[in-house]
Structures are given as C-alpha cells and as structure tokens.
Design a protein around this nucleic acid. Structure first.
Length: 463
DNA sequence: GGAACTCGCCAC
DNA sequence: AAACGTGGCGAGTTCC
C-alpha cells in the first residue's frame, strides 16, 4: 500500500486550490446531445445484432453451440470462448493472461485468423462504445449536462482520476469510436471548445530531475525516436515525411523508447518492434521485414512471416544496453541514486512537495516523480487560468483536464484573449512560480467552431 | 442478491 | 530470474 501526502504547505495549497478549481469545472460540465446518443445506440445495437447473427449462422458458431450442448453461445463470455477455442478446437494460444489463462484479447484473437473472430472483435468495439460511453453519458447527465468528477485523492502518483463518467478515457485513437463518442458532447450554447495540451511534459519533467545533458539536448533539439529507429532497425537514415519510414520511427517510439522509460526490457521490445516493422517499408519500397532479413537480423518463411529473430533479439539487447549505459548514462545514475535514497529514507519526494511512502519498486520510484510532477504543472495552470477567467469576469469556463491537457468552454468574443492567457500561464507564468523548471514548456492548442462538438476540434497554429 | 474476482479495453 | 508506469469501468463468473 503506497501512502502519499503533500508534505509542504505549497503542495497542500496546490491541491486545495486545485480541488476548488476542478469543482468549478465539474459544476459547468458538458452538454450531451441525448437524441444523438439514442440514435447512435440504436444504430450500434443493429450492427451488433447483425454481427451476432452472422456468427451464430456460421460453421464456427454452430460448432461452438454444439460444444455447449446446443445452447446459444454467449459471445461476451471470454471464459466460454476460451474453452471453445483452446479446449475444444485445440488452437494454440498466442499468449496467456496474468493468471495463466489463455488470452482472448484482440491481439490473441486476430492472430488466429478466423473471420468469425474478427466479427466478434468488431462487436466488442461497438459494445464498448455503446455500453461504456454513450450509456454513461445518458445515465450521468442531469438536465442535459454531464458533470464528471475529477479526483485528487486516489492515485499513488498524485495525478488525478475521473469518474461518473470517467472523462479521461474517451476514445481518441480509433477513428470511428472517437467520432461516435466525442460528437455526443457539446459546449454551452453559443460557445466553443478550446483545448491545450503540453508537449512531451513527462520527459521534460525527467530533464528537470535528472539533469542528463544528452536527454536535455534530445528533448530540445534532437529526435530520439528517429535516432533509435536508425539504430534498432539498422538504417542508414530515416525520413519521417516518408510514410513507410515514419512507421519505423513510430515503432521505435511506441515499441522501444516509451516502454523503456516505463521500465520494460528488450525481450518485450523486440516483439513490439517486429509488429511495427510488419507494416513498414523503406524509401526504395523494400518491406521493413525484408530489410531486417538482408541485415541478417531475422529469417523469413515462404509466406514472408518472421521465422527466427534471435539475432535481432541480441541486437536489441545491445541497443538497450547502449541506451541506458552510454546514451543516457546520467539518467541511469539518477535512478540508482534515488533508489538508494528511498531505501534509506522510506519515501520519495517530488519537486512540488509531495511525498510517496510505502513499498515501491525501483520502476515505481523512477516513474512516479515524472508522472506526478507533470500533472502538477497542468494543475497549477488549471488553477491560474480558472482564477484569471473569474478575475476578468469572463464567461469562459474550464471544463475538463486529462493529465496534460485542459479543455475550456469559451465565449467566442473572449476566444483570442482566452487562448493568449492560457498559453502564457501554462508556458511562462509557471516558470516564474517554479524556478526548478529548467527547460522551456510548450503547448499545442486546438479550437472547435462555435456550437460544434468535442469531436470536431481543429489544430490551431499559434502566432 | 450482492461482493469480489478476472478479463478486456479505453485514456495519459 | 524476470521483465510496462497511472487510472475507471463493463461483462461474466464465482462465492457467500
């Protein structure tokens, strides 16, 4: 049990003021288009039923039914699905869950290459949208507005959480899910949404703690994801404007750099890297997997699938070693230092004055400070923006916060001024308040048109 | 009939 | 030797 407390007056005050500012955002809330939700739910229900029907009528569905004594299979029951796939059909599970059961998640099912399972996955997606998001909006709305809670007392890291409904996990990556969910939410009539998010704030916090020259340089001037893609995939160079090579950079970023910073190891990373490589190709149209074969890192079978990758595994191990012991060696020393100090004192302390006590792993110790402190920057800006909006008697309001992002419901006449204030507070004023921020903070701003939903924000180029 | 659990999946 | 940080929540299942 990790027990955490604000240990300084300043830390206490941040959360005290933060709770009040967040409460005002909760009070304002977001408008829900109830008719839209109803309509979308009906559409989804039909699409789910169609998919269900197709699966029931297929040979796959009939076999499944026979295996449970002729009953209708429950397509939402993973234990039932698992018994059918892995005990009856004797398929080989690609992965096991934490508790040792064969996995039935998206990755495992799509690997089996059965059309009915792809339908089942699509059903799952539609159900998720309908039952987790649209239902929650309709259930939680009061007079047409949802008022999500933003909690400051629940996380180990001094981040926030949200519930009723959780406003911090609304789809943003899957295009269809994003559109359906976010187009249900609107600002107050005659207003427009503006949102502002910090760029790479967690790694910038790492720079503030660690004082690693190479990391600082990379964050400000370099491109570590490109560098790592070149090393990991053994490229001569990488052009991130080229769509095929951009995928390799993404692969290095999401398959190696981020997991490494969270504490993952090369054995998992190598699998991530291969997954990304499957859909990537080089400028001369060589598929990335063929390129890796040419470099003698992997071997391929006749259909072009990866057969052996032990050389690649060894290569990624070396890159990992280089990454921590050469490239970011000061970062590694910092980790050792805080680990030692935690063992001596029994707690860790953040720059913002919050302390985490209790049993923690080395990975925890070296992640919590960045995660917590990054959020504290956001919360400080949130408090200030809220204060200034009220001080200027503006009609604009803050309405939500997602760890490194703030969303505001803005009166159009106030829009330009509001954006100026928000950006200034988040990037300049904050550095006056916290002198230990030794690296420039930058934000990206998005703005929707008046009366447009949360799904229709457009990127705004700052002057 | 509800509590506690697992699994899967959404966000940062 | 093992190996990914922080949350919330819905559905199904099991246990009491």
């Amino acid at each position: 049990m990790v027990k955490s407390v604000p240990s300084t007056k300043e830390a206490y005050e941040l959360f005290h003021k933060g709770a009040l500012a967040l409460q005002r955002a909760e009070y304002t809330g977001m408008r829900v288009d109830m008719e839209y939700c109803k309509r979308k739910k009906e559409e989804l229900t039909i699409r789910i039923a169609e998919l269900e029907q197709k699966i029931y009528e297929s040979n796959f569905g009939k076999k499944w039914s026979r295996s449970i004594g002729g009953k209708r299979p429950n397509l939402n029951s993973n234990p039932q699905l698992s018994r059918f796939l892995y005990s009856i059909l004797k398929l080989k599970p690609v992965r096991f869950t934490e508790s040792g059961q064969p996995a039935t998640d998206e990755e495992a099912l799509s690997e089996l290459d059965i059309p009915e399972l792809d339908m089942l996955l699509e059903m799952r997606k539609f159900r998720k949208i309908r039952d987790t998001y649209l239902d929650a909006f309709m259930r939680e709305q009061v007079n047409g507005y949802i008022h999500p809670f933003f909690n400051l007392h629940l996380t180990k890291t001094f981040r926030s959480s949200s519930d009723s409904p959780n406003f911090q996990n609304i789809p943003k990556r899957d295009k269809e899910a994003t559109k359906i969910c976010r187009e249900a939410l609107f600002p107050r009539p005659g207003h427009q949404f503006v949102s502002m998010d910090y760029s790479a704030i967690e790694v910038k916090m790492a720079v503030c703690y660690v004082e690693d020259e190479k990391l600082c340089y990379d964050v400000l001037h370099g491109d570590m994801h490109k560098d790592m893609a070149i090393e990991l995939y053994m490229l001569d160079d990488l052009d991130k404007r080229h769509s095929g090579e951009a995928v390799l950079r993404q692969g290095a970023k999401n398959g190696f750099v981020f997991p490494q910073f969270y504490g993952d190891y090369y054995g998992n990373c190598v699998l991530n890297l291969l997954k990304w490589a499957r859909q990537a190709y080089l400028k001369d149209d060589t598929p990335a997997l063929v390129h890796l074969k040419d470099k003698e890192l992997i071997t391929l079978d006749k259909s072009g699938n990866v057969k052996k990758f032990d050389k690649f595994l060894e290569h990624v191990r070396k890159v990992e070693d280089q990454f921590w012991n050469v490239r970011y060696k000061q970062y590694s020393r910092w980790k050792d230092k805080v680990w030692y100090e935690y063992q001596k004192k029994g707690y860790i302390e953040m720059k913002t004055g919050f302390r985490c006590y209790g049993l923690m792993s080395k990975k925890d110790i070296t992640n919590y400070p960045f995660q917590g402190t990054a959020f504290h920057c956001l919360l400080w800006a949130f408090v200030e923006i809220d204060r200034v909006f009220r001080e200027h008697k503006m009609d604009s309001r803050l309405v939500s916060q997602i760890h490194d992002e703030i969303t505001a419901d803005i009166l159009p006449e106030e829009c330009d001024n509001a954006i100026k204030l928000m950006v200034r507070i988040a990037t300049e004023d904050i550095r006056e308040n916290w002198k230990w921020i030794n690296i420039p903070l930058t934000v990206e701003v998005e703005k929707a048109e008046v009366d447009k939903s949360w799904g229709e924000r457009k990127f705004l180029n700052l002057p």
